[in-house]
Each structure stands twice: as C-alpha cells, then as structure tokens.
Nucleic acid binder design. Structure first.
Length: 277
DNA sequence: CAGGTAGCCTGTTAGC
DNA sequence: TGCTAACAGGCTACCT
C-alpha cells in the first residue's frame, strides 16, 4: 500500500525543514532528473538558484513555497512519492534522488522521488498569484480565514459527489484520497452523496471534520504507510488513527460493520455503509 | 463549460 | 516458483 503526501504530510515536512534551512545559502544545484523541473529548464533552474538564500518556507495546500532572496520562489509539489531530505554532504544520494541542493556548512537537501511525478518550478514572487498551478487553488483547508460561512458558500457553488468535491483543489486545497475518506467517515456522510443534497447540519459536520481530521494528522506528523517521511526521514503516526482508509473488510470503529471499498473516479473510497448516510 | 479520462512513473502485489 | 498484469495516485492536458 502506498501513501501520498497530503496537507498534514507537507506541513510536517515544512516544520521539520524550516529550522534547518532557513537563511541558509544554496551553493550549487544538481538536477539528476530533468523532468522534475517544469520551469524554467534544468540549466536555468540550477543557475538561478545558485547563491540564493532561503528566506522563508510556506505552504498552500500540498505545495511548498521556498521564498528566496532576489524575489524568487521555489515551488515544490511532492505528488505521490516525493521526499525532501536534509542530510550531511558526506551521505551519498540514493538511487531515487532527482535533485540535489548543496547548501553551506556541508549540508544538502535531496529531493528523492521513486515515481518521478514530483514537480518543481522557479518563479518570481510577483508571478505567484497568477501562476497556473497555484492560481486555481482554493483556500488552504487549515487556513484560519476559512470560516464555516465561507466553507458553506464555496460548497454551495459545487456540484457532483461530495468525495470528488473534497479532492478538488480549487474548492479547498490540501485534501487527498486518504484524508477525504477519513473526513467523510468523521462527518458521517456517504462519499457518493451529491453536495447539493447536504443539509446545513451536514455541511457543518463536514467543515468540522475537515478541520479536526487534518489538525489531528498534523499533530501526529502525518500518515506513513510506505513512502512518506519528514525532512529528517522520520515517519508520521496518523496511520494508527485511520478509521476507514485501507481498512476494507475490517470493522468500523464505531459500529463494527465491515468497511466497504468502492471506486470513485478511479480512486479507492473506503466507508462504513451504516455510519455514513 | 463541466465532467470524464489518458498519461506520467515504478515498486508492490494479486493472480495464473 | 516465476512471470505478468493490475494497481496505487495528484495533477495536467485533452476529449466529449
């Protein structure tokens, strides 16, 4: 079973890396897998980054944003199997290393990615709001400004099944398949429900579940099923708290009935047919 | 224009 | 046992 970095995992990577790389200088960048770099080309990417200092790290949904000197922003998406690992330069890169950032003081930041789906962009900070992958994102799912009112307003503009809406990053950003399943179980809403049919108390339960599930997962440093580790290579703990995801046939923690698995838009959905209506 | 889906990738696993 | 095929999955691009 493969895990994927969603909001809590990306937030954990950010928190573990930030104290280590803040205000550190990038001395040299080696691109091993050119396809990781989407913009500009790999040569320009390395060239522009050399000599930059990392001034801040932010996150929007599943995107990591490294703010650099000279008004540049390094945008990183880990997709399924991407990792950012901080290590000593004496440790050789592993076979999945796609990009190496050599920092000062003999340290390196390695981007490793088994499936090579992860992406990086280097853009100027005034491009941030208009930059296509970021422009379409809704508010971050844990953004304090995402109030219940705003959540419901955005929800009521949506159509289709509630699971699909949760996964749509233009609705709110950061939720992937694992947490969508966990959120819907917590909200006791059937994943195939049409969003238009949700009653106001169900909309509110959904909002509360989004916040509760994601903030708990952040506290537990994310879910580690196989690939995900934080910036120091440590796994998270949320996998022990999962109620439905990856638990087909196992008892629902609330009612004991077996968890059902179905496919929605090609992705596995896990739910309890008794608790979720 | 909204909704559906192929393609990107490779390690793991189910099935023969 | 050993091989193959299906599967996992976020996002973009393309299609209807």
């Amino acid at each position: 079973m493969i895990e994927l970095p969603e909001l809590p995992e990306v937030e954990t990577v950010l928190r573990s890396l930030k104290p280590k790389v803040l205000n550190r200088k990038i001395n040299r960048v080696t691109v091993i897998n050119a396809k990781t770099i989407k913009k500009p080309d790999a040569t320009a990417f390395s060239c522009c980054l050399e000599g930059q200092r990392i001034r801040d790290i932010n996150r929007h949904g599943k995107y990591l944003l490294f703010k650099l000197s000279s008004s540049l922003v390094l945008v990183v998406h880990l997709r399924m199997t991407g990792r950012l690992i901080y290590k000593d330069s004496s440790v050789p890169p592993d076979r999945y290393t796609c990009v190496i950032f050599q920092l000062d003081e003999g340290k390196e930041l390695h981007f490793q990615d088994v499936r090579k789906f992860g992406t990086m962009y280097l853009i100027s900070c005034d491009e941030l709001d208009s930059f296509p992958p970021l422009r379409i994102l809704g508010p971050d799912a844990l953004d304090p400004q995402l109030t219940l009112d705003l959540f419901i307003k955005r929800l009521e503009k949506r159509h289709g099944q509630v699971k699909g809406v949760l996964l749509n990053q233009s609705f709110i950003a950061g939720i992937g398949n694992i947490y969508a399943n966990e959120i819907l179980w917590t909200a006791r809403i059937h994943p195939e429900r049409w969003v238009d049919s949700l009653q106001s108390w169900e909309q509110e339960r959904l909002y509360q579940a989004v916040r509760e599930v994601l903030s708990t997962a952040v506290k537990l440093r994310g879910t580690s099923l196989r690939d995900y580790v934080d910036g120091e290579g440590n796994p998270g703990e949320y996998q022990h708290h999962r109620k439905v995801h990856g638990r087909e046939g196992k008892p629902c923690p609330l009612c004991g009935h077996p968890i059902i698995r179905i496919k929605q838009a090609g992705r596995s959905t896990y739910y309890c047919q008794f608790c979720q209506n």
